[in-house]
Design a protein around this nucleic acid. Structure first.
Lengths: 357, 357
DNA sequence: ATGAAAGCGCTAACAT
DNA sequence: ATGTTAGCGCTTTCAT
């Protein structure tokens, strides 16, 4: 019997089963070259001692850590949470552990890329929606383990993402199709430089404008960061334009919801006076009846996990494999045809009052 | 120079620096018994080779894995996300890795407790808002590493939590103070048995009712699970009572928001006809102007991380240490004094129709 | 089918 | 202050 305060080792199991450690190892890994009798004895002994293998020790010899690392800007955002859900599901099934690194500010970011702690301690690294510099890309290229870029298109590297540009283009087209010609875009504040969806979605927005032969008006593009105050300011900037927007396209649902809140609490009718379109299909989007561009966040996580697993297990896999997932527009109640050229006073929105054609 | 496809080891660093591996090890761990000259050479060599230490190897000899595991019911909920934020911040500073296990259903749950994969592969385990059975508690008691229970009170074991019972009692008192005498409680569906806040908060609710000498009416307690349909049903059950509630206390803000949505979309005035009180102070609570009981979720994560770190580093720490964090009520616009003793018919009135005195 | 032995990369005595 | 040596708990030849 092993000392109380120590985890039992294979040697303990071997002794109890009356076999060698090699046999224990073979049994536990399911290698076929073990007699039924030995297998049973080993399994019984392992169970009785409630033996758990030490990954550390096997890693040392196999060179595989059995863990996948994920780097994310924050763990608190809806999108990252959903991605992690899908990811952890797939990794669990693959027998891989999931270790998370989050870097909240630029100092931590620099420290991460300087030290690259994931280096020898994970079999793969997943980078979630990071707007990386060339230097950071280069650093990761030399990491020594596969890197999968999640929710971002990384040319020449493995990545899993949705067609942000095309999705934003469609969303904008949809608004154009409703007759809107003054469409604002509210993006996350680029300050932190962590997310790359601002750039791609803004690009799609501009493409659609061009298609519809609408001018790109910089005054219609505003940035906000989390918090009522910032969004109120951003929305305020839009509302006091000489020719204010009749529709707002927000980079994410979380931003869209803030916009919605600011607009509504200032008595502006939605969608009567202004339409609002989000991006994500956040859980709350349905409650708020927010029209949005849905992206399969959990599925993104699953696909990323699967790709990482493949890359780890089969070195022959194309290291630049891309997985592109679909998006689709979900029309709900916050978008409507542009109001006629009639009055557009700020009647507090009691009733739904969609503009008629 | 080490082979291209292999991570450099301490031996590589040692060779390059012209010292022994011991000196490299000592230097890298910041032990003072190293000459300045050697230290510099080692540091230079390590940088040039971009050496990263293998935790696996050091674990093997130190017995410490340098990682903390966290078990959570899901990674997608707001609360868990916030806890992870606080946690990862503290653990990063402590040089500990964070590995997450999430169990989505009962089968996975059983598998986790059967195998206890965290066993030898983490220095501590954090269990976040799990309603554990006695058998599961017992299993964790024998884990061999410190276990910290987060967002739940675990008698005789280390835990970090808010006073759920007291908070729910205060919240209910607040509603009573506004004159409400028919107060409903909407809880998460107990089906999964994953969260324990239902039980504690319901308990506090009952205490406050007793205090106010209000009867406990089982019809006023309904359960819902995520999704518009379920919440609509639950709310429907309340609305068609002979004596329907004038206030609803929801176990979490997420539930409160769904309730809000259902009530509003059926034209019921809030807080004119029904008051709604949540729990959490979710980011969106402010936008929806939801009165709620705030709990410091990120701080819970931080405290849990700190406690885990302490428990790991200092075995003399009281293994049953408790950290209790405060909650506070944030009065917002979804709660108001009870409408006068006027009509209380359950007709889903179109117009907002706040009772008059 | 099984065991003995070597060694993965590191740390911890013990020398010096 | 530094080097030498002996493992940590596994997997993996290589014998048998």
């Amino acid at each position: 019997m092993p000392p109380a305060q120590r985890h039992p080792t294979m040697a303990d199991v071997a002794e109890r089963a009356g076999v060698s450690v090699s046999t224990v190892s073979r049994t536990l890994r399911g290698l076929s070259t073990v007699s039924d009798e030995a297998r049973e004895r080993v399994e019984a002994a392992a169970r009785e001692l409630s033996f758990v293998i030490s990954r550390q020790a096997s890693s040392l010899v196999t060179g595989k850590t059995g863990t996948v690392a994920v780097l994310a800007p924050t763990l608190g955002s809806w999108f990252v949470g959903q991605v992690l859900r899908g990811l952890s599901e797939v990794l669990r099934d693959a027998g891989l552990d999931l270790v998370v690194y989050s870097v909240a500010d630029l100092a931590e970011r620099a420290a991460f890329f300087d030290r690259l702690p994931a280096r020898r301690n994970a079999d793969a690294l997943l980078v979630v929606s990071f707007d990386l510099t060339e230097a950071e890309f280069a650093r990761l290229d030399g990491l020594g383990v596969p890197v999968v870029y999640v929710s971002q298109h990384a040319p020449g590297r493995a990545s899993v993402y949705v067609e942000d540009v095309a999705a934003a283009r469609s969303g904008t087209r949809y608004l154009c199709g409703l007759g809107h010609r003054r469409i604002a875009f509210v993006r996350a504040s680029p300050g932190t430089g962590f997310t790359c969806s601002s750039r791609t979605r803004l690009f799609g927005y501009r493409e659609a404008l061009a298609e519809a032969q609408l001018p790109y008006d910089e005054d219609l593009v505003v940035a906000t960061s989390r918090g009522r105050r910032h969004t109120a300011e951003a929305v305020g900037r839009l509302l006091c334009l000489a020719d204010p927007p009749t529709a707002v396209f927000a980079e994410t649902d979380e931003i869209a919801m803030e916009v919605l809140w600011v607009l509504r609490s200032s008595g502006i009718d939605i969608p009567g006076r202004i339409s609002v379109l989000g991006f994500d299909d956040h859980d709350h989007a349905e409650w708020l009846d927010l029209t949005t561009i849905a992206q399969p966040a959990v599925e993104v996580g699953r696909a990323a996990g699967t790709l990482a697993h493949t890359l780890i297990d089969d070195p022959a896999t194309d290291p630049a494999r891309h997985v592109v997932l679909p998006t689709y527009l979900i029309p709900r109640g916050t978008t409507a045809p542009v109001p006629g050229p009639g009055p557009s006073d700020s009647a507090p929105s009691g009733e739904p009052d969609a503009g008629e054609a």
